[in-house]
Design a protein around this nucleic acid. Sequence first.
DNA 1: ATAATTATCTATCGATCACTAGAAAAATTT
DNA 2: AAATTTTTCTAGTGATCGATAGATAATTAT
Lengths: 183, 183
Amino acid sequence: MELFWRHGYEGTSIADLTTAMGFTPPTLYAAFGSKEDLYREVIQFFLLRSERRRMDAALEQPSAYAMLRSYLYAAAESFTDPHTPAGCMVATAALQCASENQPIAQEVARIRQHMVLGFVERLNEAKTSGELPATIDALALANFYTAIVQGMSVQAIDGARTNDLLAVADLALSAWPGTKDEG
Amino acid sequence: MELFWRHGYEGTSIADLTTAMGFTPPTLYAAFGSKEDLYREVIQFFLLRSERRRMDAALEQPSAYAMLRSYLYAAAESFTDPHTPAGCMVATAALQCASENQPIAQEVARIRQHMVLGFVERLNEAKTSGELPATIDALALANFYTAIVQGMSVQAIDGARTNDLLAVADLALSAWPGTKDEG
DNA sequence: ATAATTATCTATCGATCACTAGAAAAATTT
DNA sequence: AAATTTTTCTAGTGATCGATAGATAATTAT
């Protein structure tokens, strides 16, 4: 996971993986099938371990605003966690790749879309509860906060520190078009 | 440029390039030196042709707010221009790559940093002119709008349309902590 | 028109890519 | 302990990677 996270799908070779894991290619293929299968498995592992944990904690918040704040703060922390590679493993992954790896890119893009829809769902709840004006475009707002997460991931890769990303998150939260009462 | 733009540095092979340009590898190497040199040259060409044009037009605006609006709107248009690959060639390029291509990644990251500093400079002017409160952290604000550009680039690659990105831009502009009078 | 130069070709370099057949070693079962 | 199964290794597959030597063609200069 660490290798794919840091170097991406194309930037990580079977030799890199087997060296890091301490065995030889046949063992890897017996265990995971192919490089592509292994990458998919790693992504799912990452989602369960990092992304889902972030999102679950955020969705527990009492308001949509608090959810976004929780998520963005958690992202700022984890994107700059010195124990893991910088940035997010899916938010800015597989953006450019060779034609033969297009399926990989599409799968990662689908996961990103899924994340947007998670935000949209919560924002629509906020519209019915009155936290957000009914006139608000929930999809546009979800795209906006997703863009912030993606930009934070880029900047983490470029060496930004936790506080830099927290400041970006706060500015994004200042654009919140609803109430900020609870949370 | 189109190949590197769409598939990235690692995702584009010499064979891809020579096929697209209609000649053979020795001609490419005689003309450009190496794949790395060619990529650097392409990036410079892109900066002059697209990025610099966007930035120059933005810096002509009478206010910092209008500059950001001009830049973000231009980005929304060009990132989704059907005549070129989706997204920006530098904003989301070379984020993950093999260790041996680290120099390329660092160079692109340096260009991104340069873009942030361009924003910072204009924002500091806005502080002295009174358009922005003196208490504002210009670097944080520049990082915020840069993050939006980077996120817009990711979403363009993922298939977003011009209007989607314009909506994201407008929400980012709504976070502007200064006056919006002129422009 | 001939000579010198430049440009592009064919054919390939060694290295590395993802991946695998068949042997050897380790673990498990009888 | 012997037989069987599972696992991992050595060694190598063909394909493709970026890059190049030497020959050929096209252009330019005399």
